[in-house]
Write a protein that binds this DNA or RNA. Structure first.
Lengths: 185, 185
DNA sequence: TCCTTCTATGCAACTCGTTGCATAGACAAG
DNA sequence: CTTGTCTATGCAACGAGTTGCATAGAAGGA
């Protein structure tokens, strides 16, 4: 499994509590790796008992105290080990593709509104990515050598942008096909 | 869950045994929905006891007998119900993206060969898709009204092709970034 | 001849992931 | 003044998914 590795990367970028991690997974990271707070709390506990992360109790006012996690030496080593292992091409689960093929056995036109919903969701996500890119990756280039972390975050974001653009083009194709089939009867 | 729906669609396209389904999931369907034979056998059994599929024992020579499954009326109804429910935007798990961001905390150049492996895998998959498209979706248009099933299979395949092309372009971008970072030290 | 591969199904044990629920103080809106 | 939302953590139960192993005959290659 690799949720622990995703957590390690996120904590290396910035230490935080389980709750904060869950929010990051909902936002930026969650677009290419998702997890619920339950999973995160359980895995954090295991990582703690394995010595991969250190915990620090942070008292707060006007809100519950939190436990801030940061990566320990053993965690860094574990991450390094994982980085040097080959990984499999990811396993995909495209519900929508299954539905589209399934629509042949029902009413294809009924899918149109569903596909439009997805189109809207991807439009929103693309806008969100582009706003993030403008915010974090434009402006004058900083002097001196480039920051590898920044460069790598940017190339991952460009991947997200490319993915959303591809999806939007494909969903247009799907919609055109569905409309054509609806007209043909 | 939607594995049962993927199985229903596959069985509607063509009845078959658990073993055959597993092979389909390895090949065509598995590119946007994967499952092991264990999962498939277990789910088939449940679907059978729910009356979603019918079984027929098919004796064979020179190989073990098989159970051929086909979709029953209740299965068709279940699929229709699912098709009319909205689904969530799919949950993604891009290990490679996690690795790329993680590489900032180790040696970015070490990822180059890994990314090249993925590039090769996606090149192969694209070639496989394109061969399938040439085989099944070119040639003279059949007379009469178009077959919705065929059209929908084609649009899903076009999605796979678009995905692989996008990935290849992005992986080129990733490689260029990694080489740039390696040169900068 | 032995070893592997292919067809075909399945059990058992385990880990991963999801869902529902619980606590509890602070704060804002109706 | 009650209801809902936000922060923050967690248990318990269940369902989904993975891994290892087992059987067993036929066919093909080292």
């Amino acid at each position: 499994m690799a949720l622990e590795h995703a957590i390690l990367v996120s904590l290396l970028e910035k230490p935080g509590s389980g709750y904060e991690l869950a929010r990051r997974f909902e936002r930026s990271i969650g677009y290419f790796w998702n997890a619920t707070h339950q999973q995160i709390y359980r895995v954090l506990k295991r990582m703690e008992s394995d010595g991969w992360v250190d915990v620090r109790e942070v008292p707060q006012q006007a809100r519950p105290d939190k436990k801030e996690y940061s990566v320990a030496a053993a965690g860094r080593a574990a991450l390094r080990g994982w980085l040097n292992e080959p990984i499999e091409p990811e396993s995909v689960r495209h519900d929508l593709a299954v539905k589209i093929r399934g629509a042949a056995f029902d009413e294809p036109a009924a899918l149109i509104s569903e596909v439009e919903r997805h189109h809207q969701a991807h439009t929103d996500r693309l806008a969100h990515y582009l706003a993030g890119e403008r915010r974090d990756f434009t402006g004058p280039e900083s002097p001196g050598p480039p920051d590898p972390g920044r460069e790598l975050q940017h190339v991952v974001l460009r991947g997200g942008i490319a993915y959303e653009r591809m999806m939007l083009a494909w969903l247009d194709d799907v919609l055109a096909t569905l409309h054509r089939l609806a007209a043909d009867r």
